[in-house]
């Protein structure tokens, strides 16, 4: 059993990448909504993916997730998870009362956030990543999480769990972003970080 080791310095580099991406995403979302937008990332954890469901908790809570498959240099999933009620409120706040389905509104928000992560990876570390169309699922938290985790647990033991607070105007939306990738992709990511930043 090999385990990809990420020391604090490498995790800091990943956090930095995520912070830069979050800033870019907030700028893009502010343009889209014409509102003040902030995307805080209070924690980034690199952890055993099988422990992620228990880490987040509320396994029977009704949540909505917007998931995409990433392919190319990074094979895995990007999954944005938010409470069902917050999801509907987010759609409402962003659409500004226009008659658009919540699914397309929130998918667009998540596309912007994902897009900023992926362009940071491509600009800073030369990754080429393709993304599938987003899929929206509403179910119990545990059911959503374990489905993605089980797909990856064939090859991988650890994943990146990002907690995020999205502020649109004065409203705070608390969500989670899972960045799960196959072990080969993770090894490649670490290697490119090491080469680029002499870690």
């Amino acid at each position: 059993m090999t385990q990809v080791l990420i020391n604090d310095m490498k995790l800091d580099a990943i956090k930095e990448l995520i912070n830069i991406s979050s800033g870019n995403a907030a700028t893009a979302l502010a343009q889209m909504t014409s509102k003040k937008v902030d995307l805080e990332v209070p924690s980034v954890k690199y952890m055993d993916i099988m422990k992620i469901p228990e880490e987040i908790g509320g396994l029977e809570d009704l949540m909505t997730c917007i998931a995409v498959i990433t392919e190319g240099d990074i094979n895995g999933f990007l999954v944005f998870i938010i409470d069902k009620e917050a999801y509907l409120k987010l759609a409402d706040v962003v659409s500004g009362g226009m008659n658009i389905s919540p699914e397309s509104v929130v998918a667009e928000v998540v596309n912007i956030i994902n897009g900023s992560y992926l362009s940071a990876l491509s600009e800073m570390l030369d990754f080429t990543i393709d993304v599938s169309p987003p899929e929206t699922i509403t179910s119990m938290m545990g059911a959503i999480l374990s489905t993605f985790v089980s797909q990856l647990s064939l090859t991988t033991e650890d994943g990146i769990l990002i907690s995020s607070n999205l502020y649109i105007g004065d409203t705070r939306f608390k969500g989670y972003q899972l960045f799960l990738m196959e072990e080969d992709s993770l090894i490649d990511l670490i290697k490119r970080l090491e080469d680029k930043y002499n870690l």
Partner: peptide, 12 residues
């Protein structure tokens, strides 16, 4: 007095 549970099963 115990109750065993798997909360929130998806594909599992």
């Amino acid at each position: 007095s115990t109750l065993l549970a798997c909360p929130g099963l998806g594909s599992c």
